[in-house]
Every structure is written in structure tokens, then in C-alpha cells.
Design a protein around this nucleic acid. Structure first.
Lengths: 339, 339
DNA sequence: AGATTTTACCAAACCGTTTTAAATTTGTGC
DNA sequence: GCACAAATTTAAAACGGTTTGGTAAAATCT
């Protein structure tokens, strides 16, 4: 049913009906109520594409999906979608062709002036992120999940990676560990740098020298967790503890330790960052995994909120949220054997 | 830039320009070329929402995202998005509120007549799936990833679950196993039923009686893998081999075996179904995991193709695709110790 | 060369809303 | 009961394309 027909049945003009449904003030309460009731009864719903054309709003926000190591992506999306569906806003997913490194900035560029989205979410930012500069230049609203160090103003939601890893590392130091390896995320990403900093600061506070041979960077896969852990454990003296960037990395470390006959929680301690997944929990690993924890699904939901606020006109400069991270100690962290 | 202005600059009518860009035949080759070149040069692109309103097409397909145990979801989506982005078709993600079982059919219903999507993908079908009946009734094109046994005609793309599990089970039987446990997917889903059938047929072919105490159903999480495996291994005599529904389930089984001091690949054999993830590979597990394998990302890409064909008018009855599944033997399957 | 078809293009109607600017009705103060 | 302001309602003009139904020019046929 079209607006015109519906309005006719009510004996009202399309204008009034449109306003009644959109909650504009210049409609009497009585009329508004009647319109709402009849709309429900007759099943009238405005044509979404006509609305979009008339308002110029896309009614959707864009998310770029990378290809590798993105097992946390669907959790973040889930949170986002959960919150956004209340407001009748769609999520538009664009895949990134990671074979071509040039393509990323082009993809954001295309997405921004495609008119398909009102705002964009930027993931895994770098300290001087080209995408942020681009979107700012184009005037496309966006929220960074994570942070950048660029001068370009940007709304962001991040977790306290630095603090989390500082505490995790400090905890291992408290237990007596002195050779602590870290398997971090992809080099160059802000969150990786923050984690590096947390790690180094914790060491420095104890006067332990930083050893670059104990730090590795890469995607969050069990494969890399295994390979890095393996090569670290082959060093002499070998590290007695690991700080892992993700659950998958931790799986790889567990595997590496086992493959060398080392017992996690006795000969090797492990602490990882856990984004909280319904299908793989730190609690359930054997031994149970000590972890810094922050729900990435909750972050997705909150990102949606912030994006809506941004679109509603709240200034970018106000939208900065830093979430604390829990540290949960379980069986995988114990004092070093030879301490 | 609007069509009108752009056309004016070219000295053509909006009609001709529109047709030239959409590839209609009643435009001379010379003109078409000129229009295309100028469009690229001046950066003209039709307003997507105007196109949608005028054509009545949404330019998007809908996917419903469940909440639990959906770690394969993003891989499927990735394949889908990869293919769909070539055709300028969006993916619209709707989250399912799994607290309320009523809401699922309502969600599909809303999605179908929201006008936001041209087609919908249905996952994890049941033999007599309400959603399929609904979409058919509403005349909304859809593709089932998986299959149903309903009389309602539906396009589908499925992997040969039955054959895969039959071969996996047969392989274990060939090795000499007689007590083979299976941890399957959620009860009632067609794919689970097909896997059950493959399992039972393999047993029957050898005259091994089916023992319901060796079969469990549930979401694909490591937690359930662990719990079920644990309770199976506590039986006497205990099973000597497992058929697992997913990689996460396999992780749980590995963990359960270890927690009971049993060595995988010697005292317990495991074979799982692997959807192929970039961040967790069967090859890399220790011991490496024998698996039935089929890329869910490839299935996503192909689903997009089929959906496009469906929208282009190919009859539903022609769109049925059953993919064979590879069986890859690795270290986790060996003859039983006491055989 | 004239009649007929084909090719290439165009003017105007349409898609279904929102929003601007103006008209009507209702309410208030005197 | 009247002038004036406030509260409602409306007609008409966007929004930016696609598509229908023609028309003029070029090509083909008699």
C-alpha cells in the first residue's frame, strides 16, 4: 500500500500521515494515535527506498571485512547488528581484497561516495591511518574501533590495550618470570603498539631489559602462535612465560609447548587476550587460560550507539571511549619452575 | 552530480545516458563509449537510492545471523561478499534474537516484506522448515544453504554431509574401530540428520549395531565437544574413535582425551568436519586432525552466484547443487590399540 | 524516388516518500 | 463577537533516477 492510498482511507493528506508516523510535533496527539493504529491494522509501511531518496539518508552503516584472522569479526558484527536493528539501520558488509594492498583505501573511498552508507566503521587503525584522513576529507561520518594517533579528529571506541598488557606482564613478573615472550598482533596497528608499550613499561618498571628476540608480530592464527612459540621455546635460555594476543594464538602456544614436552601452567605460563567467544572459552582450556578479557560483542553494540549519536549530531571530539580490561587469573599462570 | 547535469554536459538526454550506462541495446556503440568515458572522467555515478526507487529493486540480499556457535558465519559471509561486490549488491545482516524462539520466523517475515532485500539466504534448514514455507508463500526469492525435505520448492546448495560422514565412519571401521562416538550438530537440522544417516549406514554396512549412547547433538562449541567427549570416554568400554561435527568440537575432544590421560592418535582416534578457516587448521593440530573438508567460503561465493541466477530468472527447480566432500587423513586416525 | 523499416535519440510520466510554504481551523484576550 | 496568534492540516515541489511511448534521421526495400 502506498502512502497516498493509506492517507485517503484515513481521510487525511499524505503530509499529515507522513508526519504523524515520523513523530513530528505539528500533528495533534489524537491524529497521531489514529494514524499509528490504522497503520498497524492495515499494515502500511513506508517504502524504504522512497524514504531513502527523499531524505538522502542511506539507512545503513558500512563495515569492511578483512579476510585473514578475522574470527572475532562476526562477534563484533553481532553486537553491532543487535543494537542497530532496533533503529531500522542496515549493516552493509564490503569484503576487502587482501591480495592487493592498494585496494583498501580505494574500497573505503568507493564505499564513502557510493551513497549506500551514512557512516563507516574503521577497524585495526594505524597510528597515522590513511583511511581516517580519507573519510575525514570526504566528510563521511565514521567511528574507529580502536584508535589512531593522527591529528585528524576521529570518534573512537577502544579498549585499554596498553593497561591490559601492562597488568598481564606485571602479573607474570610478580610471579617471578624474567624471560617473558610476547606474540602480538600485526605490526604497525595502533593496538599492537599499545600492547608493545604496556609490555615494555611493565618490564622497565622492574628494570628488566627489553629483548627484541622475545617479541613477534602477526595475524591472530593458531598457526602463527605455534610457529612463534616454537621458535621462542628453542632459544636458550627459553622464555618461561608468554603474553598472547588472542585465543587462537594461545591455542598455538599450547600446542607448541606440548609438542616440546613442556607443561603449560608448570614449565610455561601463558596469558592471552580474550575477546569472549561463545564457542571457545579461556575457562575451558586445559589448563584453563589466564586472560585479559573484554567482550568484543559489547564493543560492537556500543559502537552502534556511538555511531548513532555521531549521526545525530554529537560532536566527534566528545566521542572517545576507552574501556578498561579485566584480568582473570586461571591455571595457566604460575611461578616459574626454576625461580 | 545529477543525471540531468551530466547529460547536459554531454549534449544528450537523460534517457540516453541512463540507457547507455545500463547497457541497453538502443544506444549506438559510439555514444555508449563516449558516455562511459565521460562518466569515468567526471565521476558521475547514479544515485543508488533513486535507482532503487525507480527500479523497485533493493540491490541487496539478506542474511540472518544467529548468535551461538556461528564461528563459520563470517567465512560464509566472506565468500558471499566477495562475489556480490562485483555486481554492486549489498549484504544486509539481521541479527537473530535467540532468547525468543518465536522471533525467528517473525524476523524472516519482516525482512521479506521490508523491501530492503531482493532475496534471502536461509541457513541450517530443518526437514520441514517454516522459513522456507514462509518465503515461498511471500514470493520472496531465497536460497537455502543446506537443504530441507519439505515439498515446498527451494533452491539449495549443500555439501554431501551424509556421504562425508559415511566415508569418515567407514574409514574408522576399516581401521578396526568398533565403538565409534559421534558428536553431531544441533538436533533437528537437516545436516545433522544427514550426518546421522551417514554414520548409521556405515555401521549397518558392517553389521555393527547402532548404540544411541554414543551419539550426541548440540552447538559447535569446544565446551560441548569437551563435555560430550568426556562423558563418552567415561563409559566402559569406552569408544576408541570420534566423529566430530566441527573444528571446535574437535578441540573439545582433544582436550577431554588429554584431561583423561588418553593420547589422541593412539588411544583415541578423531575425525572431524572442517569448514576450512584461515585461523585454525586441521593440519596444524597436534596430532594433525583427519577431516572431511569443504570450504564454506567457497560455498558462500557459489551461493551468491546461484542467488544471482535465481534473480535473473533461472527456475528454482534447476538450482540444486550438492558438493562432494574431501576426506583427508592425518595423524589423528589410527587403528585401535587393542585391535 | 517513394514507401517502409530500423536505428538513435528524446520528452514526459512515474517510482513513493519528505519537506516547504501556504491555507485552514482552533483557541485566546478583550 | 472580533482581532490575532497558535495549532493543525494541506497542495505542490522536491529527491534523482528509469521506463513508456514517441519522433526524426538513416538504412533498406520496392
Amino acid at each position: 500500500m502506498k502512502l497516498r492510498e493509506f492517507a485517503q482511507q484515513l481521510g487525511l493528506s499524505p503530509t499529515t500521515v507522513s508526519r504523524a508516523l515520523s513523530g513530528y510535533p505539528e500533528v495533534s496527539e489524537k491524529t497521531r494515535k489514529r494514524v499509528a493504529e490504522e497503520a498497524a491494522r492495515l499494515g502500511y509501511r513506508p517504502n524504504i527506498n522512497a524514504v531513502r531518496l527523499a531524505t538522502g539518508r542511506a539507512g545503513a552503516i558500512g563495515v569492511v571485512m578483512g579476510r585473514t584472522g578475522e574470527f572475532h569479526f562476526s562477534e563484533f558484527m553481532g553486537g553491532l547488528a543487535e543494537r542497530l536493528s532496533d533503529d531500522d539501520i542496515d549493516i552493509l558488509v564490503s569484503p576487502l581484497d587482501e591480495k592487493d594492498p592498494e585496494s583498501e583505501i580505494q574500497l573505503y573511498s568507493r564505499l564513502a561516495d557510493s551513497g549506500r552508507v551514512d557512516a563507516i566503521i574503521v577497524h585495526s587503525a594505524t597510528p597515522n591511518d590513511e583511511r581516517i584522513a580519507l573519510l575525514h576529507r570526504l566528510g563521511m561520518p565514521f567511528l574507529v574501533h580502536g584508535r589512531s594517533e593522527t591529528d585528524v579528529p576521529h570518534a573512537w571506541l577502544d579498549i585499554d590495550n596498553e593497561g591490559a598488557i601492562r597488568r598481564a606482564t606485571s602479573h607474570l613478573l610478580d610471579l617471578g618470570h624474567r624471560r617473558i615472550a610476547m606474540i602480538n598482533g600485526r605490526q604497525g596497528r595502533t593496538f599492537s603498539l599499545h600492547r608493545d608499550k604496556g609490555y615494555r613499561d611493565a618490564l622497565e618498571a622492574r628494570g628488566i631489559p627489553f629483548d627484541p628476540r622475545l617479541v613477534a608480530h602477526g595475524n591472530f592464527t593458531d598457526e602463527l602462535g605455534f610457529r612463534f612459540a616454537r621458535s621462542f621455546l628453542e632459544q636458550t635460555p627459553r622464555p618461561t612465560a608468554f603474553v598472547a594476543g588472542s585465543m587462537m594464538t594461545a591455542l598455538g602456544i599450547y600446542r607448541a609447548a606440548r609438542s616440546m614436552g613442556l607443561e603449560i601452567g608448570r614449565e610455561v605460563s601463558v596469558i592471552a587476550h580474550d575477546d569472549v567467544f561463545p564457542y571457545l572459552t579461556a575457562e575451558n582450556m586445559v589448563p584453563s587460560l589466564s586472560a585479559t578479557r573484554s567482550s568484543i560483542r559489547a564493543a560492537g553494540a556500543r559502537s552502534a550507539d556511538l555511531l548513532l549519536q555521531l549521526l545525530a549530531g554529537r560532536p566527534t571530539s566528545e566521542i572517545h571511549e576507552l574501556w578498561p580490561v579485566e584480568l582473570i587469573l586461571r591455571e595457566s599462570t604460575t611461578p616459574p619452575q626454576d625461580a
